[in-house]
Write a protein that binds this DNA or RNA. Structure first.
Length: 117
DNA sequence: ACCGTGACGAGAT
DNA sequence: CATCTCGCCACGG
């Protein structure tokens, strides 16, 4: 038995990551750690980023809504151009300065909490 | 097959 | 405070 309560294989893990990222609402952002946590593998935030780095081909996929826990756009270099991540966020009304989301706490979306109106 | 690297993050120093 | 250490594990050289 693995250390993880949910023993994912590579395929299911990435499928779950992709599914959760698709749930992030327009104009909101989440973090690698929050996603890993909601999948029951809190210590594998790094693997979430690894999965996302392989999703560049997916259309209509909001990879830009995932940032690090401090609100920095650490994944920007994996997009087609170095400012595409920022541009997509700005288009959704997210304010950014020096690769950091302004008022990050206010637009953070935690997959576990799933706030419903 | 080994090894360094990396869209991370929490805890230790 | 800042910086370091370590867990995590897929991937390419």
């Amino acid at each position: 038995m693995s250390r993880n309560s949910l023993n994912f294989n590579k395929k299911t893990f990435s499928a779950h990551v992709i599914a959760v990222v698709r749930l992030i609402p327009y104009g909101k952002v989440s973090t690698y750690g929050a996603i890993a946590n909601c999948l029951g593998v809190k210590r594998s935030a790094r693997m979430v980023g690894h999965v996302l780095s392989k999703t560049t081909g997916l259309i209509d996929f909001p990879a830009h809504r995932v940032v690090n826990r401090a609100g920095y756009l650490t994944g920007k270099h994996h997009f087609s151009s170095s400012n595409e991540m920022e541009n997509r966020l700005i288009a959704e009304g997210v304010k950014i300065k020096n690769d950091k989301i302004i008022d990050f706490e206010a637009i953070f979306w935690d997959p576990l909490i799933q706030i419903e109106p």
